[in-house]
């Protein structure tokens, strides 16, 4: 197997609480190649957000190893772009200033890159708008541009389209795929939407809860751009759904045992 960009080996993470502890992640192994689009799916409480936050360096206190480009993750940084569920833009900055954030827009090189990204996320004409004037989908596109400006080795997306309506979400999925194909940025995309997972990913990682561990990794060999209505797509969707439902059953059995 060739050297992976991101290597997660034997990752364990538990949260201590007053009532004991919760095993959030249990022996997770995942190796992501450069340029891959990984989608992670699972019911709530399966640790998918925790996994992503550990890769981002936002959570620590885990055992096992997580390396990006051969070095252990030390903390958050611009080499690991992160898109949150909410856009988390600075409300006092315009779109272009939000994208630049701490980088000077007066710098010609940065100015050029920001303009390029605004083009890429299709926000031309909204450079001077404030976050409160944007729709949810537009704001999330600004957040994506903000992360991409830093040329991250990997882009981590934590249910970024979860709060959007179905139409905007479908639109954002195509926008994200366009970006991925244009920039070849490695992506890990966490979602609880099966269609979204199959539509976007090279591989779909299915997590199961309590303890959070990988149940199955399903490769999606369909060529891009994919069509949700084709029978091959539906076949894969059913395959994932099948695993997903087994996870659900497990969860129910678990719940009944309490």
């Amino acid at each position: 197997m060739e050297e992976a960009l991101l290597s997660i080996s034997n990752l364990n993470k538990r949260f201590e609480s007053t009532g004991g502890h919760v095993q959030a992640l249990y022996n997770v192994d995942l190796h992501v190649q450069e340029g891959e689009f990984i989608t992670v799916i699972g019911p709530s409480g399966c640790g998918k957000s925790t996994l992503l936050r550990i890769v981002a360096g936002l959570d620590n206190g885990y055992t096992g190893s997580v390396t990006l480009g051969g070095t252990e993750i030390g903390g958050p940084g611009i080499d690991k772009g992160f898109i949150f569920q909410e856009h988390r833009l600075f409300p006092w900055l315009t779109v272009e200033k939000n994208i630049a954030s701490d980088l000077p827009l007066g710098n010609k090189e940065i100015r050029r890159k920001v303009d390029e990204l605004i083009n890429l996320v299709k926000l031309n004409g909204f450079e001077k708008s404030y976050p409160r004037e944007l729709s949810g989908g537009m704001a999330q596109r600004v957040a994506i541009a903000r992360a991409l400006l830093r040329n991250p080795k990997i882009l981590l997306l934590d249910e970024p389209f979860g709060a959007l309506d179905a139409f905007t979400r479908a639109h954002m999925q195509t926008v994200l795929l366009d970006i991925w194909r244009a920039n070849k940025t490695t992506m890990i995309f966490v979602t609880h939407d099966i269609d979204e997972a199959v539509f976007l990913g090279n591989r779909v990682v299915i997590l199961e809860p309590r303890p959070g561990k990988i149940r199955k990794i399903v490769p999606v060999d369909l060529p891009y751009p994919r069509k949700k209505t084709t029978s091959s797509f539906q076949e894969l969707r059913l395959k994932v759904l099948n695993y997903f439902e087994k996870v659900d059953e497990l969860e129910l059995i678990d719940g009944a045992g309490i």
Partner: peptide
């Protein structure tokens, strides 16, 4: 606090 997290991810000094 959510914006603080953003500043960490963006590597603010």
């Amino acid at each position: 606090n959510k914006l603080f997290e953003v500043s960490r991810v963006l590597g603010f000094s």
